Computed example of a mutant assay.
Amino acid sequence: MPAISRRSLLGGLALLAATPSLAAATSETLSVDADEGRVTLNRFAAARPGKRPAVLVLHGSRGFDLRPRAYQRYADALTADGIDTYFVRYYTPADEQAFAAMQTSARREVYEAGRFDVWAARVSSALSAVLAGADSSGRVGLLGFSLGGYVAAAAAARDARVSALAVLYGGMPDKIAPQVKHLPPLIELHGDADRNVPLASGEDLVKLGKSVGAAAEIVRYKGKAHGFDFADNDPMTADAVSRVAGFFQARLSEA
């Protein structure tokens, strides 16, 4: 397993400067050793004292900084429920350079298919660091959006320490699906008018979860497109945030 820095108050994480590009609630930016270089995390600590569960949030293909307010809604809801929240920047610098150079979605899809193993491993390194923290309850969930949903599903299938999985308009990578023997309890939220990731991909993930014995459900949003929950004034945004927070509150508080 990659070495984890012990230079910070969090025991398993290296402390860096605060990140002003995210909302003011961001308490600190952290760094974890991983394959192909360090992983940067933005940590949002819940106010509840004592040991707490955590959720690692995995961004879509364009990262957190394009729509920080949308991701922040989930962090606010989770921390209000006493769940520490970490934004995991799982891309490497090489990934960012490769994406910047690509002109077509087809090329991106080919590139992504070859990176799921590395990205899942990098998420597991972040998970190790969070679990090593003095305030960790030992229960951690993954929350992934679009591409991040695929990465979260791949990581959850390969890392039994993941206690719960929530995926928004994502699925399981095709090359990993036949190998899956385990998944934690999961929920999929998906618009039925999604043209980026078909609803069938989310349905297949839920079927896969059930086939390996996991409690799995899908919530379909009629007429909603990809990224529907990023809209500031759509009532379904609040519904999605509430469902995700409620799912993690129930699953991560279990003994």
Rank of each mutant, 00 (worst) to 15 (best):
G11W: 01
L16C: 11
L16S: 10
S21A: 12
T26S: 12
T26K: 13
E28P: 01
T29N: 10
D35V: 15
G37C: 10
F44I: 06
A45S: 13
P49H: 02
V57N: 00
S61V: 14
R62E: 15
R62D: 11
D65S: 07
R67E: 12
R69D: 11
Y74Q: 13
D76M: 07
A80M: 04
F87R: 05
V88T: 10
A94W: 03
Q97W: 06
S105F: 15
R108S: 11
E112Y: 13
A113L: 04
F116Y: 12
A120W: 04
S124G: 08
S124L: 03
S128G: 02
L131M: 07
G133L: 07
S136M: 06
S137F: 08
V140N: 02
G141M: 08
L142N: 02
G144H: 00
G144W: 02
G149V: 05
A156N: 00
R161I: 08
V167T: 01
L168N: 15
Y169S: 08
P178D: 04
L189Y: 00
H190T: 04
P198M: 04
P198D: 06
S201G: 09
S201A: 11
D204K: 13
K210E: 13
A215L: 15
A215N: 10
R220D: 08
Y221C: 06
F228T: 03
F230Y: 10
R243D: 02
A250M: 12
S253L: 11
